[in-house]
Design a protein around this nucleic acid. Structure first.
Lengths: 124, 124
DNA sequence: CATCACGGTATCCTTTTCGACACTAGGGGT
DNA sequence: ACCCCTAGTGTCGAAAAGGATACCGTGATG
């Protein structure tokens, strides 16, 4: 479901840039990763499905599921299902996911510094 | 033409992350910025339209134009047109664009370290 | 006269993405 | 008997993104 981008590695050497973008592209993945990195409570930083929903009220269930599943397929997030009723599912970063921290922080820092005040700069 | 993403800032505080992603999202913008940051020759790091085309052979003219125009609209790239024949147009980063350097470098570094060797990791 | 270089536009069409909305299971509470 | 809770899934349809292809002006060159 992720943007297909270029499957043949046709850019070089900027390709690594695109390879990384491909993983965190997808309209909500950036925020999901940010919440897992910086917001998760508890010792191991796990978040449940509805915890995400509370943090991101405008994401539909279907989209949230999709984005989480893609992050899981990319090996960035691990999904733990507890066989309980009502169901309980916890999401936490994998080591690979945690390694994205400098990237997410760079994105956050830039956004805070250059984009957040208002976006009237480009109000067409 | 860029992905619409969320226009109401409905995520917080991960919003800054998305705000930044929104600017460099767009299938080729990452590579374009990378080339402008790291590859541009000359003292002021300008690249001409066909210089991009040579570096990214698989991008169509239309897409390249679109991506460059969006980067220009976002204030990341400046476009200089010389009234000559044959036409000459140079693209260079604005100060705002140059400020993205740590972000691009983080993306590149992660890609080199975690994604480039092969992507058979997730070959489904 | 024809062709090339350059930096694009214009059209058309397909693929991808995303949002709305309805629906599910199964135990516990009232 | 009925509703609530969690963590989803299914289907539909609109909108956006992106690819293919053809076309443009103009001055220099062959």
């Amino acid at each position: 479901m992720a943007r297909t981008r270029h499957r043949s590695l046709d850019c070089s050497p900027g390709c690594a840039v695109e390879a990384t973008l491909q993983l965190i592209d997808g309209k909500w993945k950036g925020v999901i990763l940010y919440h897992l990195l910086a917001e998760a409570p508890g010792p191991d930083g796990a978040l449940r499905f509805n915890a995400f929903r509370r943090r991101m009220p405008n994401v539909t269930q279907r989209m949230l599921t999709n984005q989480l599943r893609e992050l899981e397929a990319d090996g960035l997030v691990h999904r733990t299902v507890y066989a309980e009723v009502p169901p309980r599912v916890e999401y936490r970063l994998t080591a690979r996911g945690r390694s994205l921290e400098p990237v997410i922080r760079a994105l956050k820092a830039w956004g805070d510094a250059h984009a957040m005040p208002d976006e009237a700069t480009r109000a067409a």
